[in-house]
Design a protein around this nucleic acid. Structure first.
Lengths: 246, 246
DNA sequence: GTCGACTAGAATGTCAACATTTTTGTTTAC
DNA sequence: GTAAACAAAAATGTTGACATTCTAGTCGAC
């Protein structure tokens, strides 16, 4: 009669958990773009078989968070500048629609959820918890997607937000801040006022600020190392050859 | 030096091929919504191991074309009325954007591709090839997505178009036609004229015609059988109970 | 005749072992 | 000292077999 609690919960739960942990690690930049995700190591770390890890990686690949090259393995994705522009462009198309739809179905519970989130963001900013700030900034847009009660919109914005995190991690100018402090609060204010036009416009502005903060001109496309060390005079930085002989 | 051609091509190609064949079969309604997709049978049919079929099914599940219930297996998806409305709603958001972007990058090659497609659709209609008509109707929207040169938009509209096919298969009123004959041609005409406003409006009208042709009120949500026979007086249709006593 | 339990078959979930390819480290020739 | 060639190690790709779960068919009790 009584459900005997298995020590590790259902297996389906386990792989969802693994997915979430890797997902969070990518979002919070603990696994920077380009990081290799070796199946064997992950299997060892999470105490499951490689097949399970393979399923998780397949899902991450499908969502564009991870890139997979045959016989080479999986790596955290490195969106190209073109992809970055396309992500923002698509977000400009659907996010105004999301706020519009959210306003048309707004209720007290949703307003409460929005307020709670803003508070959490403010807290993270006060504590200067960089990882948390990044995560919550993305979560804000995911929350709007969830609250608008259209699962397809919600999934899309979630995937695009995640990619945006990777883009910021790759291309953000250190001097600028990708997410200005008060923009989310202003958007929420417009939503609560049920001012569709203002909310949509603020959202578009917000997305354009994000795009503007990215330095997409200096293409760091390739395998990293080539471009990173392209301007370094290799010989000059070595120690002088006087102590070395054959 | 010379590449020795393997008899069956690369394995990656093989699973892409299997995916495509199942995908086409779903689109063309040879595998109607709800059809069970047993791993073992598919493995036998395509001459590959079950693991390969599993990968293909996982991808179809990700795309929403196939539903998976633990311990029960995979079935061709049966979008609910709510899902159907949400799919159309999202399409209303992104497809005007797609035509706008397509117009801004239009060239002769793209116009040629659009014209070729219209011709193929007309041919299929002349030949009254129902399966081909359905497929090409969906392909039209995918083509717009591809031509607008934004991979994320292209993927989204491809997935949403596929789901729309399933929706039409489930909910289309037999008396109405989901895709009016000339609407695609009119949209293309507006695109070639570079008239963004008209093209967007025609696209929205087109999507609303599709939604209007669906009978989403009579919810056939559940496992099919329950609702289908809900209004049937079961006893009345049986033979009279004179031969039965307690 | 209906309902329930039981049993045989089939399908799914999982894993560990094997084959292939890539990468890394060492040796050898020039 | 450089560079190519070879060898060892690690990682990925793939498969077949086993365990568990669900389904369907049969049998027996009331």
């Amino acid at each position: 009669m009584v459900d005997e609690p298995k020590q590790s919960g259902s297996n389906d739960e386990t792989i969802g958990n693994i997915y979430h942990q890797i997902y969070l690690a990518v979002i919070e930049q603990r696994l920077p773009p380009g990081t290799k995700l070796a199946e064997g190591k992950l299997a060892q770390i999470f105490g499951v078989s490689r097949a399970r890890i393979r399923d998780v990686l397949a899902r991450l690949v499908f969502e564009g968070i991870v890139e997979h090259v045959p016989q080479k393995g999986a790596h955290v994705a490195r969106p190209t500048p073109t992809q970055a522009r396309n992500v923002i462009e698509m977000r400009r198309m659907i996010e105004p629609g999301i706020v519009t739809r959210l306003i048309s179905t707004l209720n007290d519970a949703k307003i409460g959820a929005l307020m709670d989130h803003l508070e959490a963001e403010a807290d993270a900013r006060r504590e200067k918890d960089a990882q948390l700030i990044i995560r919550l900034s993305g979560d804000f847009h995911c929350l709007l997607g969830t609250l608008c009660e259209n699962e397809f919109l919600a999934r899309s914005i979630r995937e695009l937000s995640t990619l945006t995190c990777l883009m910021i991690s790759l291309y953000n100018a250190p001097t600028r801040e990708a997410c200005r402090d008060d923009e989310h609060a202003q958007i929420v204010a417009a939503i609560v006022d049920r001012d569709e036009a203002r909310a949509s416009q603020l959202m578009i502005d917000h997305l354009e600020h994000i795009e503007a903060s990215l330095m997409l001109n200096q293409a760091v496309d390739a395998t990293d190392l080539d471009k990173v060390f392209a301007s370094v005079n290799f010989r000059a930085t070595r120690r002088q050859p006087e102590t070395v002989e054959g």
